[in-house]
Amino acid sequence: MIESEDLTVREDYQDIIVICPTCKTKKDLKIPTKIINQAKQLTTVSIPSGTVCEHSFQSFVDKNYKIRGYQKIDFEFSHMEFYESADAEVEETDGPTVNLSSQQLFQDIIKLLRSYVDDKEILGSGLFNVDGHVLYSSLPSNTLFSIIKEFEVRSEKKLSSLKKMYLELENDQKICSNYINIKDMRFALVLFFAQTVKLGMGNLYLNDLVKKIRKLEN
């Protein structure tokens, strides 16, 4: 078992003021700087209802923490989400992260990951590259930072050839990850489970997720 304190990673935040595109309510939100700094393009921040106001919406944040725009949405989600989004004005477009995030398949995978989170058994989900670069996350901040650090360490030790990763926190919450090749690029899927979920059941959820992604590719 891995102690939760050992998994805790300190992370700096940047304050940004967001404005709801529907009711114009303003609020100061703290955004993890590491996620913004990792992105080669814009970072989409999905803001659930109750965070700023009664509306759910998305903001698009550039690498200078400037909001480039907002979008009203017609789907529901319960956690703040971060993922890299395409921007035609940005010249840095090399690498597997950008290649995937610019495809419709990436949006379909995000919808699938979002659909798995039920706040009862599955508390969050994510998609990372093998170096810990966040492509999509609805994970709680502390869990997200811990996973980034774990992938970074595994990359440094050249352990990314491993197929799966299971972590159990001190409070019995579980993190299950499965490395997967998507369009000839290697990534890691992550599901974050409540205390009541056994690792065996978590593995079944993860296998089911992989099968559904394979269907999306076809």
Results as ranks from 00 to 15, higher is better:
17 I>S: 05
83 Y>N: 04
159 L>Q: 09
117 V>G: 04
81 E>C: 04
135 L>Q: 06
166 Y>K: 13
207 N>P: 02
5 E>M: 12
150 E>M: 11
79 H>F: 07
83 Y>A: 06
185 M>R: 08
126 G>C: 01
96 P>K: 15
210 V>Q: 03
86 A>N: 11
101 S>Q: 08
115 S>F: 01
118 D>Q: 06
153 V>L: 10
66 K>S: 10
19 I>Y: 14
94 D>L: 06
214 R>E: 14
105 L>N: 01
9 V>S: 12
50 G>N: 13
14 Q>P: 02
182 I>V: 11
158 K>T: 10
198 K>C: 03
23 C>M: 04
182 I>W: 10
136 Y>N: 05
159 L>M: 06
125 S>Y: 01
14 Q>A: 11
23 C>F: 12
214 R>M: 11
162 L>D: 12
141 S>C: 10
74 D>V: 00
150 E>L: 14
10 R>Q: 14
17 I>Q: 05
87 D>R: 02
152 E>N: 05
216 L>Q: 03
150 E>V: 13
162 L>A: 15
168 E>Q: 15
126 G>P: 00
212 K>H: 11
75 F>V: 13
124 G>E: 05
103 Q>L: 13
112 L>N: 04
61 V>L: 07
206 L>N: 02
181 N>W: 04
184 D>P: 07
114 R>L: 07
193 F>P: 09
128 F>N: 07
52 V>I: 10
16 I>G: 14
191 L>S: 07
23 C>K: 08
1 M>E: 02
14 Q>V: 07
96 P>H: 06
53 C>A: 07
113 L>K: 02
32 P>T: 02
160 S>L: 11
124 G>L: 06
86 A>S: 08
154 R>F: 09
38 Q>Y: 15
99 N>L: 09
9 V>H: 11
188 A>W: 06
100 L>C: 00
69 G>A: 03
151 F>D: 12
49 S>C: 02
21 P>F: 01
52 V>C: 10
40 K>C: 07
191 L>H: 09
12 D>F: 12
7 L>P: 00
71 Q>S: 14
94 D>I: 06
140 P>Y: 03
148 I>Y: 04
164 K>I: 10
107 Q>D: 11
98 V>F: 10
22 T>D: 08
164 K>C: 07
14 Q>S: 05
165 M>C: 07
75 F>Q: 08
41 Q>W: 14
196 T>A: 12
9 V>T: 12
134 V>Q: 01
183 K>S: 05
190 V>E: 08
114 R>I: 01
134 V>W: 02
86 A>G: 15
207 N>L: 06
131 D>M: 10
214 R>T: 15
54 E>A: 03
150 E>P: 03
183 K>F: 03
205 Y>K: 14
145 F>D: 00
188 A>V: 15
211 K>Y: 01
209 L>Y: 03
11 E>K: 00
61 V>Q: 04
117 V>S: 04
34 K>S: 06
216 L>G: 05
155 S>C: 08
122 I>K: 04
52 V>D: 02
